[in-house]
């Protein structure tokens, strides 16, 4: 096959040798498009959001008036140390959201670890791929469909109620309860916990486990001192997903639960008071920053 050598002095030839001689320009042009996207779309909208927090809304027309002030921050951050320096309403919303996110994260890690461990270290290659497909398949279904499925299961007239009646709990209803939200979240984010843990467990070399055994460690000791420490980055990476996904969700409280999480407060205020909504939107940002700062110390980002 003849090589398609461009003639000397053609545009193609000249530009290719130009980029060869100027690697920095080459790198710059390659990265220009994605970086512009990141800067303009992500950072600019984030800054606009921050700017919004300093504006106020005309109470009658609910249109945004651009005069600067700290009034929204005064509204939200008016508490003492007992309420994390937040006004009581926003403190309670933050507390409920963060506690829910933490409970979902703990449960998902507990459920995910055995599944990931079995798939990565015990199962035959065939069983392993079957398990991983079963884990991933729900992610292909629409998120709303999965939430509505749980709504149908948990609300009146559904299987959950039938089960409770069967075991004699006739006056217990799951509709609109925190427990119902917890079930739904645990189900929704479980695959996001399984996958990183699976990835980290799969990377543990067999030789390390053999070595541990050769040195006289029991199965339990090997698990505790060798496997688990190596899986920690994967566990933390999974927990970042489950935690931050719960923190940002506002559909589940609306459809399955009752009351207000961060997302509900933001979405309900967004239409009537965008500047206050923008101020509240900083709360999950702060929480996620703190969480990521803690997660970073465990080396979870090297596992990403």
């Amino acid at each position: 096959m003849a090589t398609t050598e461009a003639p000397r002095g053609s545009i193609r030839r000249r530009s290719s040798s130009f980029f060869f001689r100027h690697p920095k320009t080459r790198r710059g042009l390659t990265l220009a498009a994605p970086l512009t996207w990141m800067l303009v779309v992500y950072l600019a909208s984030l800054l606009l959001l921050l700017a919004n927090a300093f504006w106020r809304v005309d109470s009658l027309t609910s249109s945004v008036v651009r005069d600067w002030g700290w009034r929204n921050f005064d509204t939200v951050f008016s508490g003492n140390w007992r309420t994390a320096f937040l006004e009581r309403t926003y403190y309670l919303i933050s507390l409920h959201t963060v506690v829910m996110a933490a409970l979902v994260t703990i449960a998902d890690i507990v459920f995910a670890f055995p599944i990931a461990f079995f798939a990565a270290r015990v199962a035959s290659p065939r069983a392993r791929s079957a398990i991983m497909i079963a884990v991933v398949i729900p992610l292909w279904a629409n998120y709303l469909v999965r939430v509505f499925a749980w709504k149908a299961m948990l609300e009146g007239g559904g299987p959950a109620e039938a089960f409770l009646h069967a075991i004699g709990l006739t006056d217990v209803s799951l509709t609109g309860t925190t427990l119902a939200m917890w079930f739904t979240y645990c189900y929704l984010w479980l695959p996001y916990a399984i996958l990183p843990i699976y990835a980290s467990l799969e990377r543990v070399p067999d030789s390390l486990i053999d070595a541990s055994g050769d040195l006289g460690a029991h199965t339990g000791t090997t698990f505790r001192r060798v496997v688990l420490p190596l899986a920690i980055p994967g566990i933390v990476a999974g927990s970042i997903f489950t935690f931050s996904l719960t923190l940002g969700d506002y559909i589940v409280p609306q459809l399955v639960g009752k009351g207000s999480f961060f997302g509900n407060a933001i979405s309900s205020l967004y239409v009537s008071n965008p500047p206050l909504a923008a101020t509240i939107a900083l709360l999950p940002l702060i929480v996620v920053f703190v969480y990521l700062a803690l997660a970073r110390r465990t080396g979870a980002f090297e596992a990403l």
Partner: peptide, 30 residues
């Protein structure tokens, strides 16, 4: 590391915010 951490946090924060509503700023009162 710091830049990676920052960008990851920014993306996650934006997901939380973007999930809550489509963003558009209203114009000032007519």
């Amino acid at each position: 590391k710091a830049v990676r951490l920052l960008s990851l946090a920014a993306v996650m924060g934006l997901v939380a915010i973007a999930c809550s509503n489509n963003s558009s700023t209203s114009t000032s009162a007519g």
